[in-house]
Each structure stands twice: as structure tokens, then as C-alpha cells.
Amino acid sequence: MNNAQKYWQANIRLVIGCLIVWFFVSFGCGILFVNQLNAIRLGGYQLGFWFAQQGSIYTFVVLIFFYAWRMNQLDRKFNVEEA
């Protein structure tokens, strides 16, 4: 496997990891398990409701910056940065 293929594999692994978190906070906590989570309180928020209307959005922001930061690292590691 050449360098570009290894870089691509590392990229795919990172994307899959990020998308698992993406799915978990929105579809998981915000929709599928919302009723179970609503038994837990976060101040005045029921936790499932909080994920659906607040938490998932904050997580999305963090995820994109994490992805951008890790990709920059991978670019350098595999020496495929832009000039």
C-alpha cells in the first residue's frame, strides 16, 4: 500500500469515528433514546430534550474543529500538505 492509500485509510477511519459521534448525539440521544434520557435532569432541561435542542449542536461544532485539527496532523504526517 502506498503513501496516498495509507493517508486515505487514516482519513476514512477518522471520518467514521466522527460520524459515529455525530449519529450518537443527534439520532441516538436526541431521537431514539430521548424518553429514557428525559428521566435525567440538567437543571431545568430534561436531558434528551437538551440533546435534541442544544447539546447535539454544540457537539457538531466541536466535531468539525476536531476533524479539521486531526486532518491537518494527518496531512503533515503523510506529507501531503498544500504548498
Binding site: V15, W22, F49, Q53, S56, I57, I64, Y67, A68
Partner: peptide, 26 residues
Amino acid sequence: LLAMKGYDASAYLMGWTGGYCLLAML
């Protein structure tokens, strides 16, 4: 929409923001 539908309108909040993860990564 949120005021009238409450929790059910969460789909719009998550949908119109979560798409940016797909855009950024894919």
C-alpha cells in the same frame, strides 16, 4: 415552529446544523 411544536421541531434544529458535519467531512 418550535413554539408551536415543542420537541417535535427539534428535527429542524438538528437537521439544519448536523448537515455541516457531512459537508465538512464528506
